[in-house]
Design a protein around this nucleic acid. Sequence first.
DNA 1: TATCTGGAACGAAGC
DNA 2: TTGCTTCGTTCCAGA
Length: 933
Amino acid sequence: MQDTFSPSVRPNFGFGAGAGKARGLLTSLTTDMKSAEEDAYNYTPNVSLALPLGMGNPCLPTQYHTLQSSPVISVSSCHQTGYDLQNENHPVSGYYLPQGLRPNGAPALESPRIEITAYSQYPENEVEESRGEDHIIKRGVNSIVTLTLPNADGYRDPSSLSPASSVSSRSCNSDASSYESGFYNYDNSPQNSPWQSPCVSPRGSSSLLSCPHAAGPATGSPHHSPSTSPQIGAMAEEVWPAQPRGSRPNSPSCSGSGGGNTGGIGKRKYSFNGSSYHQTYCSPIQSPTPSPHGSPRVSVTDENWLANTNQYTNSAIVAAINALTTDGVVDMGEGIPIKTRKTMLDLTPSMSLKVEPGCEELGPDGELCHEDYPSHLGLKKENYGGGFLDVPQHPFSWPKPKTYLSPSLPALDWQLPSCSGPYNLQIEVQPKSHHRAHYETEGSRGAVKALSGGHPVVQLYGYMESEPLTLQLFIGTADDRLLRPHAFYQVHRITGKTVSTASHEVMQSNTKILEIPLLPENNMRAIIDCAGILKLRNSDIELRKGETDIGRKNTRVRLVFRVHINQPNDRTVSLQVASNPIECSQRSAQELPLVEKQSMNSYPATGGKMMLLSGLNFLPESKVVFVEKAQDGHHLWETEAKVDKDSIKSSTLVVEIPPYRNQRISSSVQVNFYVCNGKRKRSQYQRFTYLPPNVPIIKTEPTDEYDSLGTVGLSIHSKPFYGQPRLAPIMPVTEPDTCLVGSYPSCPPRHAVMPPSSPSSSPTLHDLSPVAYSKCLPNSPTHAAPPGTMVPPIQETPCCPSLAHPSSPDHNSSLGMLHSQGSPNHLNSPGPQGYHHSIYANSSSSSSPVSQPSTPGGPAESSFVQAYSPSQSASNSAPDGESAPSLLPEDAAPPSMAITVKQEPQELDQMYLDDVNEIIRNDLSTISVHTHA
DNA sequence: TATCTGGAACGAAGC
DNA sequence: TTGCTTCGTTCCAGA
């Protein structure tokens, strides 16, 4: 949020070219805005510049401790590497590119921004840096203004956090919060928040020297960004006026339209051409100057904002101009909705609160504040007492992990690997695919459960220290874009007798994070029985400035787990894994067909075999459609499979595998199929691989649960729902964890550290090393990949080849990965689809010089991925040994596969998501047009 | 009694 | 513009 302007971030600017460019821009901001925009949107070539973190980032080293010697204004545009790949239809290659622009997934790092560093402009004292939401306020030595062109900071209001576990928790949406709402939170985004930038090694990397900025706000804490928004998530909550339960009045929507529950007038319309959508993109909010008041954002009036079709850039520019004209002092009041202002004001006081010991306890990273920490409680009550429901502290406590020592934790929208070096974070037990989220007006609907009836389980492998760690959990998106915090859902802490796992909430960049202890005595394994999902009113979120996502039909989420491991060298390794998608709406859960398992993942092109599908909401009229798409998104083939109507049950369905359109394929071909219950009622895409006729099929052992199904004598394979395959208990399929290009040392062999099966580890692996980063990040615009490319958004390399069990059927995937470091398998991976190679402090950087490929979206990677995707996908999709890839010689697969196999980057085929994506695409294209025009 | 759940009503948006 | 459908949000009631 807010504070994103951390010194660390600056490094980006530090890049020679980038810096120079930036300066030029400054001088000609007014006139050159367009170019800036273009940069932002197109991810122009500055690839090198784009890499925020990379080696190029000089910042890292001294950033925290050293002041910059000279003011620097730089504009950098980073590329996102892999976003577009996923979009099949993006007219604009850069759809996702504008990172800053889009909260969606664009890595903050890549978003173009303008940073202004004023050295002595502000008395050190005057500069208060708040770590964004966090409460830490630091006095910055230098004031640096960072303007993120496109996005604003607020991904979501900090305020949006519902009071922890309290049932009556207030929604973030409360009026108070609205102020922030306007901004997309990119705070976390690397761009904005320095500390999060991977490249930075908090403690000392000499490399940083190169970055003048680094010194930046040394203010003591990298966390603090001068410009940071005053708001603190927690504070916001507290500030909110108490809202009677069930009353809608507070929601913006209500106020605006006086309308119905859903938000009447205020509700956004989904037409992209119209301005309505634009409204949300608002101003760049970050105030360049540290505002004592706490309002960090540069205000841009809505009118102004709206006027521009290129809101992102324009706003950014405007913000920059404002910043310049005001010397960084921005009149927050201007352009900010009354409501917002009010909130801001309210928040002001909270700033001080931020400086709470509790937060500090966690570590230098100001971002993380434990709301629940006892130490905080007192403060909260005192300060926020009125109308705020204090969340009871969790009775459990555990030794405070030292994981947060690193000031530069990655932003929540960063794509992190699930394994790195010896460590591997895995979801041993996936959550159920449906979990009805509760509104603030409702009581809790309980913790997310596992399919088996228990709860999700997460385990960290490879960690041998005695020091406990903290597992972070937040609600992430599950659409086809990069994984990022979900704007419309927050994790909700569940407490009670039935909850065995300690936890507490923390706010980071307007996203509530549940922190759960990972204890050595528990084998670094945590049962997630303390996490529910809170639904925020769409109207509340959509009305926020800068919010670009729409809530309607955007009801799918993923549980995102992170762990930060401090290394001896003071570096921090951050791992992340995301669960399978979870449908959170009541209606969807009741109406949409869901395929949870399928008896086989692959079969010869001749087809004809019966496949048993297991899931929910199957109807007599359900249809099963096999689809093959080209990389450009075009349908190459589509056919309706024969369904055995007699055997249809609500939870099982038997379908005959249709023959593939080409019976003579020489390599496996991945297609998808879905179950359709009618218009707009389709299941997600399920993967299926057609094998060359002559390929021997290896069958996996049927799982117990399906043994009886024998109707067709089929064994069911658990299927990864989204990107991640579900592991069958018996035959755990290792998801091909992909890593960013192997920059990072491969994960330890699973046998050594890992459990036999790794179900859901997210595919992420990226090299965090700075070097890798620099190389990777800058993907060429090409990355923007042709619209509609099926290539996974982010190219990941199989992260831990070793992860694949030799014994596991999945093995193939591992093979593929081995050969190609970037395997696209993440297609399935639920997790982050793009990884920031961010290991900010990662020691391993050296390990993989190669990191290049890992770059999401990097051209090279793309191609690479394509080539292997088939196999990978196959492997991914078919964990069971049947997948062709495993069978095929390593050499054999690649080339041909590239041609025949199309990978679906995202399996979100839900109509919902499609709709949303479509809208966004349209919107973007419109913007793009304007920009170029 | 409080919490969890499932179901459904209500109203607005979308078509 | 109207009517129907879809969806989000709130409310109710039972376990």
